[in-house]
Computed example of a mutant assay.
Amino acid sequence: MQQAYIKSPLGAVLIEGDENGISKISVLDNDMALSQDIPGTLAHAAKELAEYFEGQRNTFSFKLNPAGTDFQKKVWTALLEIPFGTTTSYHALSVKLGDVKAIRAVASANGKNPLWIVVPCHRVIGSDGSLTGYAGGLWRKKWLLEHECPPVQQSLF
């Protein structure tokens, strides 16, 4: 398993993976020495993440290989279907997955998402529109949602 640390506006980002795909992307609260050389197996992911933060990318094309249970992977696959610049609720996601009573299980799987940003768990909000639960901190969730759907400045005159 190879690793690289890249810079983002939200902190250092750890990328882990191998020839089978990227298995982990996470943001770190502490400063890390950024990687001077990105391993070839991680270069595509590092490039696309940089483009995302620069506002030049809204989809990702590198191969994913997250570890998780079948249920977690089912939830993460559903998260991949949330369009860029939009949100959904835990309730709506549970309904989509076929079990409205699975809200807590869906929320738990969402919180265990190992592929930060790429599997867009930040696009899941409370049914009342609140920014509920986010492992990276609600300030990061707010930043990501605004980055993906910036408020439109209306003309003052």
Rank of each mutant, 00 (worst) to 15 (best):
33 A>S: 12
38 I>M: 14
31 D>C: 08
20 N>F: 09
33 A>C: 08
17 G>Y: 05
27 V>I: 09
34 L>G: 06
24 K>E: 10
20 N>G: 13
20 N>D: 10
15 I>D: 03
16 E>T: 11
33 A>W: 01
15 I>R: 06
36 Q>M: 12
39 P>C: 02
9 P>S: 09
14 L>N: 00
24 K>S: 14
20 N>L: 06
22 I>C: 04
31 D>R: 15
38 I>Q: 13
24 K>A: 05
20 N>V: 09
17 G>E: 07
38 I>L: 10
25 I>R: 00
26 S>E: 09
27 V>F: 13
27 V>T: 08
35 S>L: 11
26 S>D: 12
32 M>I: 15
18 D>W: 04
14 L>Y: 02
15 I>E: 04
17 G>Q: 02
15 I>M: 06
20 N>E: 06
32 M>S: 12
23 S>C: 08
39 P>S: 11
23 S>R: 01
14 L>I: 04
11 G>Q: 04
36 Q>C: 14
35 S>F: 08
31 D>M: 14
22 I>N: 02
27 V>S: 04
16 E>N: 05
26 S>V: 09
38 I>Y: 14
29 D>R: 01
22 I>A: 08
32 M>H: 11
10 L>R: 12
24 K>D: 10
9 P>W: 12
26 S>T: 09
28 L>S: 07
11 G>F: 03
20 N>M: 08
12 A>G: 01
13 V>D: 00
35 S>Q: 11
39 P>F: 02
36 Q>H: 13
35 S>E: 13
19 E>G: 09
28 L>D: 08
29 D>A: 14
28 L>E: 08
20 N>S: 10
37 D>Y: 07
21 G>N: 07
12 A>D: 02
28 L>T: 05
23 S>W: 01
39 P>N: 14
38 I>G: 11
26 S>A: 13
31 D>K: 11
23 S>D: 02
29 D>Q: 11
30 N>T: 04
13 V>Q: 00
15 I>T: 08
18 D>H: 06
14 L>E: 00
19 E>R: 06
36 Q>K: 15
39 P>K: 12
17 G>C: 08
29 D>N: 02
14 L>M: 09
39 P>Y: 06
30 N>I: 01
11 G>P: 04
34 L>Q: 14
31 D>Y: 13
19 E>P: 02
32 M>V: 05
32 M>W: 00
11 G>M: 03
12 A>K: 07
33 A>V: 15
23 S>N: 07
21 G>K: 05
35 S>K: 12
23 S>M: 09
33 A>T: 14
19 E>Y: 04
28 L>H: 03
13 V>E: 00
15 I>C: 01
36 Q>S: 14
27 V>K: 03
27 V>N: 03
9 P>Y: 15
37 D>I: 07
11 G>H: 08
16 E>Y: 04
20 N>Q: 11
32 M>F: 00
15 I>Y: 01
22 I>W: 02
21 G>M: 11
34 L>W: 10
16 E>S: 06
14 L>A: 10
34 L>H: 10
13 V>L: 04
34 L>A: 15
25 I>T: 12
20 N>R: 03
25 I>V: 15
35 S>M: 14
14 L>H: 00
22 I>M: 04
18 D>I: 07
34 L>K: 12
29 D>E: 14
17 G>K: 04
36 Q>G: 13
13 V>H: 03
11 G>K: 01
23 S>Y: 02
25 I>Y: 00
28 L>N: 05
11 G>D: 02
13 V>C: 04
12 A>T: 07
38 I>E: 13
17 G>S: 13
20 N>C: 03
35 S>N: 14
22 I>T: 07
